[in-house]
Design a protein around this nucleic acid. Structure first.
Lengths: 219, 219
DNA sequence: GCCGCGTCCGTGAGAATGTCACAAAAGGCG
DNA sequence: CGCCTTTTGTGACATTCTCACGGACGCGGC
């Protein structure tokens, strides 16, 4: 279980000495689905590299609404937790394990050391930042400028499994888009009326994927 | 003009050798008010440190709407331009000089070198990232969860000068908040009706600052 | 002056989205 | 089945967005 480094595109090219250093000095941790990876008052002192599973990062409002900011997939890192969430304690962003999760925790000291010695590691870290910031820009763009029906169609396409089924409650879909549950319910009914989806408790079956894609593209 | 480094809280503690390196290897550039500091297809290869003036970073929609993401003030750096905007060329974020601007441009090589050798410089860079990301979180929070009247009141308080005057057109205020001009016009009229502000072409005079503050806080 | 002209602002109507309060339906479980 | 929780449906209304105008203001040319 020592060669998890090979799963990280950006870390493959580290030289052998650094790879050994990374594997020997970082701990492998596991988290149950649904547990809080980081949150208000619980910023880890470690850089987390996700080996398996996905982490959902979201934000709350006072009024109980939520919005999903981005997801960290296996093979990616949680750079922002180290850097930014410390400063951002007045508002509440948190990371939730969407599945059971396995991750490598790199202590801050080792992180610092690697940043100093390895250009490859630096590139990996800055690319991670870049990725997350791009995600945030995207969320802002969507929130400010796109209609809800289009965003919902896009989200359904993103979240569907191989059978074209999205397993999520209306409430969860609303949280994905940062809107209200009623809005989602009504939009989904409209999609169903047009024969694009089929609704049942806790899931949405996509019946006409192309119609959804057209909505996303053309408008 | 060599001691601009002292203006940067995070760089003061660099040792003398590195300070000399920074000043000798980076160019001082000046930009006219209104010019594009960076934008689609024009990401600079340099890290910019702002000596004087402010840069406004904003995003466009296809439909001609805009939203201000954050401002870079004198004494801060444009870290995101180097890292993120390259990856984000499909959507259009750009930096505009809000005033005449003077900045130090640090070549990528020097940046890389400093990151490798100086813990103080690393901290400076990561803090800069942290600051920007916090700003983006804030924008998302506002967009998703706050009413426009509250956001407008907040913005007026932020943008007022010493005399309580905000010099901006309704269109510009709309761009600040990522909303439509008509919405701002109507909200401002409502504020005026209540005696909180006085409107004239191109400016808003705040007449009752406390009322605006109350609106921001209590709701 | 006063005539154009571009920018800025006001307005009405209707669509889209958000809020609130409740009720109905669906599923789990003893 | 009866009871409970979760999920979904619905109406009424407030807020925000969009579209299509028209009028007002400031400025330069005459």
């Amino acid at each position: 279980m020592q060669d998890w480094i090979e799963r990280f595109e950006g870390l493959k090219r580290l030289d052998e000495r650094l790879k050994r250093k990374l594997t020997s000095q970082s701990r492998i941790i596991t988290l149950k689905k649904g547990s809080v990876v980081f949150g208000p008052g619980a910023s880890p002192e470690n850089l987390l590299l996700l080996l398996d599973g996905t982490v959902r990062v979201q934000q709350h409002s006072d009024g109980g609404r939520e919005i999903v900011l981005y997801r960290v997939q296996a093979g990616e890192s949680c750079v922002l937790t180290t850097a930014a969430l410390l400063a951002y304690d007045d508002h509440s962003a948190e990371g939730i394990a969407e599945t059971d999760v396995r991750a490598a925790a790199i202590p801050r000291m080792v992180f610092d050391d690697l940043i100093a010695t390895s250009p490859e590691f630096r590139e990996f870290v800055f690319k991670s930042y870049s990725r997350r910031i791009t995600d945030l820009f995207y969320v802002i763009d969507e929130l400010a400028f796109r209609r809800v029906d289009i965003r919902l169609a896009q989200k359904l396409l993103d979240l569907q499994d191989r059978e074209g089924v999205v397993r999520a409650t209306h409430q969860q879909l609303a949280a994905e888009l940062g809107t209200a549950r009623e809005v989602i319910s009504r939009q989904l009914q409209e999609f169903q009326r047009r024969g694009w989806v089929k609704l049942s408790r806790g899931e949405v079956k996509i019946e006409n994927e192309n119609a959804l894609r057209d909505l996303v593209v053309v408008v």
